[in-house]
Structures are given as structure tokens and as C-alpha cells.
């Protein structure tokens, strides 16, 4: 353990140095390591992607980048810490879906979609609706017909109330006017096991998690929640929800954010640097390995993306009744 302790001590030391050091004038930015705060435990795709960005970032940013993990409160702790960080450009937060979603669901300290500064979007992946290959429905139309004829009979799995996949499935149910029942699971693996054993009828999931089962022919994807058909030939012939007549676009995405109020030129340096990192072939390879499509979006566009997504989620949460049910129980 000594070895990893040493590394940890090193990380902590650089972090402390990063936080405690006096503000430096803008023209010499960056003059010390930049910290990326990740709101997940080590090892998940958000963490691994951040580590790959950090690894490949040094030549592009002109300084080293370190990753620290601050899991807790579904990632809100890390967002709060990013928002509260010194406005000197040495603290960056890994941003993902809950940034726009969490403020709508509960009393978060900030509305992250407006209280953080967008740096860059680097990758995204659509949710897909997947069923067991032996299921009696082989297309989205069959699925919807079956659900219409047998209200409440189809059970679908999700990995937590108010997660993107749960909301997307409820949105589908609302658009298609069908009654399907939600079964909560404690993570993706048990949920996929339940689908493989046909204990549940369908799941809305990140395609990476089921990729090998799709290849093996045990799981079939009925539709993808992307704007354009997915380029992977594995999903050739699978329609998007929009193509199938249901207006549903829902992406899992990975990007980076900074505290509001950092100097304009520092923000610009960060945005330029992250653009180069995100388009570096080495980073692109990791993005793909983590199951995301490389999907670069610059800071200003990304900020607008947050606003738009949050507005759309607000509508969906109201339409599906998720917001009302949460608020009613809070009372």
C-alpha cells in the first residue's frame, strides 16, 4: 500500500497547493497544476475519461492536470465544490447529465446549468431501449402494441428514480400513451442480469453496457434515443425513436465546467486547451473505449446546450408526473 499512499499523498499535496496558493496574474496562467474534480468514485467512465483527459492534457495546457474524486450526493458535492472553487481557473469540474437534472429534482445549492461556466463537451452516447431476444416483440411498434393491449404487464428496469434512463423511459410511455411498470435496480449489472433471465421485459440503457450481448444475439435493441442513427454497424437497421414516430432524444454526455466568474482570458485558455485535448487522437480513443461517441462542443454552444436540455427536462418531468410525485412526497 505504501506505493499508492505515496501517490495519494502526492495528489493531496498538489491539490492543497492548488487551493492554497495565492492568485496569480492572468498572463502567466497556467503556472501550476489544474485540478479536475470528479463526482464519482475512481473507476467509472466519468473518472476514467477525466484521467485520460488529464493524462493527455499536459502538452496542450502547458501544465499538469490532476484528478480528485469527490463522490457523494449523486455528484452534487463535486458540482458544489467546483462552483465554490477559487475563480482562478485551476479548478475544473467533470460535468455530466445530473448537472442539468439535479437542480430540477431537489434543493441543490446552485442551479448548475446557469451557475457554472461551460468549458467543453467531449463525448455523448444515446440511451437505447433493449429487450431480450426471445421477447415476443421484435420491433418498437410490437412493443408499444403489446403494452397498449396489456396495460401494466411489461416491467422495465432502471437504476434509480430520476436518473436519465428512468426519465427517458417514462417519457416514451407518456408519448406512446402506454402503461409500463418501473422496477428499481441498484446498478446496471443486476438490471442486465434480470433482463437476461427475463425477469423484466425491457431496459433503457447506455449501449456500451449491453454491447456484447447484442453481438451475441441475446439482447436486441428496439430503438436509440439519438438524433441520427448510431454509426456502429452493430446497430445497423435499428431506428431512432424519432424515426419510429416518437419524439424522444436523450443522451448521456461527458463534459467539463469551471466556476462562474473566472477571468475571461483564463476561461478562453481553458476552452482552447480542452478543445485540443478532446480532439487529440489518444483521448478520442479512450472516449470510444468508454462507449461514447466523440462529440466535441465548444464552451458557448455547450452552455446553451445545458439551458436547452434543462428546459426540455423540466417539461418532461412535468408531463411524466415524476416531478409531481417527488414534490408531493416531500411535503
Amino acid at each position: 500500500m505504501k506505493f499508492s499512499n505515496l501517490l495519494k499523498a502526492g495528489l493531496m499535496a498538489t491539490l492543497t497547493a492548488g487551493v492554497l496558493a495565492m492568485p496569480v496574474s492572468a498572463q502567466e496562467y497556467p503556472s501550476k497544476p489544474i485540478t479536475i474534480i470528479v463526482g464519482k468514485s475512481p473507476g467509472g467512465s466519468t473518472d476514467l475519461l477525466a484521467r485520460a483527459m488529464a493524462q493527455g492534457g499536459e502538452p496542450h495546457m502547458g501544465t499538469s492536470i490532476v484528478v480528485v474524486n469527490r463522490p457523494g450526493a449523486s455528484g452534487n458535492l463535486a458540482f458544489n465544490e467546483t462552483a465554490d472553487a477559487p475563480k482562478d481557473g485551476y479548478t475544473v469540474g467533470a460535468a455530466s447529465n445530473s448537472l442539468t437534472l439535479a437542480p430540477l429534482l431537489g434543493e441543490t445549492k446552485y442551479n448548475y446549468a446557469t451557475d457554472l461556466e461551460a468549458i467543453a463537451l467531449v463525448g455523448s452516447s444515446p440511451y437505447v431501449l433493449a429487450v431480450h431476444n426471445d421477447a415476443e416483440w421484435s420491433t418498437l411498434a410490437d412493443f408499444v402494441d403489446h403494452a397498449t393491449a396489456n396495460p401494466g404487464a411489461i416491467k422495465y428496469g432502471h437504476t434509480g428514480v430520476g436518473t436519465g434512463a428512468h426519465i427517458a423511459t417514462e417519457q416514451l410511455a407518456s408519448i406512446a400513451a402506454i402503461d409500463i411498470q418501473a422496477v428499481p435496480f441498484d446498478g446496471g449489472a443486476p438490471m442486465i442480469v434480470a433482463l437476461l433471465g427475463q425477469h423484466i421485459g425491457a431496459i433503457m440503457t447506455n449501449p456500451l453496457d449491453i454491447q456484447e450481448h447484442v453481438r451475441a444475439g441475446t439482447i436486441r435493441v428496439l430503438a436509440t434515443a439519438s438524433e441520427a442513427p448510431v454509426s456502429d454497424p452493430l446497430y445497423g437497421g435499428v431506428p431512432t425513436f424519432t424515426e419510429a414516430g416518437y419524439d424522444l432524444v436523450s443522451l448521456v454526455w461527458q463534459g467539463y465546467a469551471a466556476p462562474k466568474g473566472i477571468p475571461e482570458d483564463v476561461l478562453q485558455t481553458l476552452r482552447d486547451g480542452f478543445e485540443k485535448i478532446a480532439n487529440d487522437p489518444a483521448t478520442v480513443a479512450v472516449i470510444e473505449q468508454m462507449g461514447f461517441e466523440p462529440h466535441y462542443m465548444g464552451g458557448e454552444e455547450f452552455a446553451q446546450f445545458w439551458i436547452d436540455e434543462q428546459a426540455a427536462l423540466q417539461v418532461t418531468l412535468e408531463q411524466t408526473g415524476i416531478l409531481q410525485s417527488i414534490q408531493e412526497q416531500k411535503r
Partner: peptide, 13 residues
């Protein structure tokens, strides 16, 4: 995760 970062996706195949 360690497998995936090396481009190996465990599964039935």
C-alpha cells in the same frame, strides 16, 4: 473498467 480501458469488453463472445 480496467479491461475496457484496454479495449477488451468481456462478455459471451
Amino acid at each position: 473498467s480496467g479491461f475496457m480501458i484496454h479495449g477488451i469488453q468481456p462478455g459471451p463472445m
